[in-house]
Amino acid sequence: MSVLLDLREVSKRFGGLQAVRNLSFDVRQGEILGLIGPNGAGKSTLFNLINGVFAPDHGRIIFDGIDITGERPYRVARYGLARTHQIVQPLTNLTVLDNCTVGACFGRKNLPLARAHEAAREAIAIAGLENRAAMLALNLTIAEKKRLELARALAAQPKLLLLDEVLSGLNPTEVEHMIGVVRRIRERGVTILIIEHLMQAIMGLSDRIVVLNFGQKLAEGLPAEVARHPQVIEAYLGDPKLAAELQGAG
């Protein structure tokens, strides 16, 4: 499998905090790569580095053969990289359809408005928001906003989708539904890098797992391998419940 996203020794420091340290791994074409680690391990910072919200202090980020290190977010989006936010960021006074049309218009395909509408409707259908299309984003429930995040990113028809805790805050039924949506997206050939705290879910979804701790890579491998990894278990021991889940899931 070819490499879609290649991180080479990426580091980022905020004041006295080394958020990401010398991190290297790659995401391969067509896979779902899970990114786990205790709170504050640097997962969200890593997403912000990849899609250009912050520039890394050191290291390179290569996406689909292009060096995107330090590129502005809107350039990165144009190359075919879309993301969702852990804290939802809807365009509140626009409709669900318009939200997704923005994604389609300015994403990889740079579609004209009319064709962007079609792409947006398609993405809305995949995310299961058809009967909310004409609603203003601010009137959605939190679960619907999470799906909107996903639909909007998907409408951009990205090569790589970064999912930041799309399952958090959802009830079990909604979680089931969302997992189905993520699977369907992958079947369409979109590569996915996903951050998630629900161990059961991410272990089941991911082809491979990368574990971060204190901004460094702790382990990398198949879900079952990672779950047995002694250092990983140790890292999660601060949170026995998670550690137990990890073992159960593996």
Partner: peptide, 13 residues
């Protein structure tokens, strides 16, 4: 609506 979100969606702000 949200300049940061717009940029992330690809709007050349």
């Amino acid at each position: 609506q949200n300049e940061d979100a717009a940029a992330i969606l690809g709007v050349p702000t």
